[in-house]
């Protein structure tokens, strides 16, 4: 496969909705269990870090520590939800459960399957955000008037991390190897994307690196701006970064998976 083929437009049809629907139906079977983490995690993090640790931390850029980390918690959940959905979970469906094999024997094509998986990953992120927003708003940590805007933003961010996860699924030799991108990419991002302390505390070159290459930076920043109700122009930059990278990675991830699966 030549490099340019990884960027070619895959023929995705509305049938990908059926694949999305399949995953949604499985999700709904355990809906209570699936809703628990996004409900519980903000409570735990906010008590321990926001209000516990926060008592010893000065205001950051004029906001109390709990208010500072609350939007980041949503962003982190957006990242984890779709990344894990489209890495470990997609790999299990592809390799162990042979779900994809069964589906492509029907009029649904492999491109539809991957697109459906990506959309589902993004949906998971959006659902998590939607559950977390009222919990966080209950503490008065985000501006509820703008909070609804976070939901479509979470979908977009989810799509980005779904595509990233899917790229790793396409190349991983086995399920254990997905631990590498988690340890080397996702975990550092969790800590160094302006999540628990501002980017400005980092050395300048690292700041630039984070802005250029760490997707979570833009999602944290975006959700923070929306959550505070301060819709500044810099939000457009974050949005543009996410849209461009997301579009490219969506193409690449579908083509990479196609290459892996068509034999």
């Amino acid at each position: 496969m030549r490099i340019s083929e990884y960027f070619s437009l895959p023929k995705v049809s509305s049938k990908s909705y059926k694949v999305w629907q399949r995953n949604k139906d499985v999700f709904m079977k355990d809906i209570k269990l699936n809703f628990l983490p996004p409900f519980l995690e903000p409570l735990l993090y906010l008590s321990a870090l926001g209000f516990g640790l926060g008592r010893f931390v000065e205001d950051i850029d004029g906001v109390p520590y709990a208010n500072f980390i609350a939007p980041a918690l949503i962003a982190i959940s957006v990242m984890y939800a779709s990344f894990f959905e489209c890495s470990y979970s997609s790999y299990v469906r592809m390799y162990y459960q042979k779900t994809f094999d069964a589906i492509i024997a029907t009029p649904v094509t492999i491109e539809d399957v991957i697109a459906g998986e990506l959309l589902w990953g993004a949906t998971r992120s959006m659902v998590n955000a939607a559950v977390m927003i009222p919990v966080i708003a209950l503490f008065g940590l985000i501006d509820i008037r703008y909070a609804l805007l976070i939901i479509p933003f979470a979908f977009l961010g989810g799509l980005l991390f779904a595509a990233i996860g899917m790229c790793f699924t396409a190349v991983t030799p086995n399920i254990m190897s997905i631990n590498y991108p988690v340890l080397l990419f996702i975990t550092p991002m969790f800590l160094f994307s302006g999540t628990f302390f501002p980017l400005s505390a980092l050395p300048l070159p690292v700041q630039y690196f984070a802005i250029a290459f760490l997707p979570l930076t833009h999602i944290v920043n975006g959700i923070r701006l929306i959550g505070y109700g301060t819709l500044e122009p810099v939000l457009l930059f974050d949005l543009a970064w996410i849209i461009v990278v997301c579009a490219v990675l969506l193409l690449v991830s579908i083509n990479m998976m196609k290459k892996r699966l068509i034999v």
């Binding site: 139906d25 499985v26 042979k98 094999d101 649904v108």
Partner: peptide
């Protein structure tokens, strides 16, 4: 190779599959 959808029951397997068509 068997590739039934293990996340579903027997009946659901048929229904989910019918949607692809």
């Amino acid at each position: 190779e068997n590739n039934l959808d293990m996340d579903f029951t027997v009946y659901e397997n048929l229904l989910v599959f019918s949607r692809y068509f």
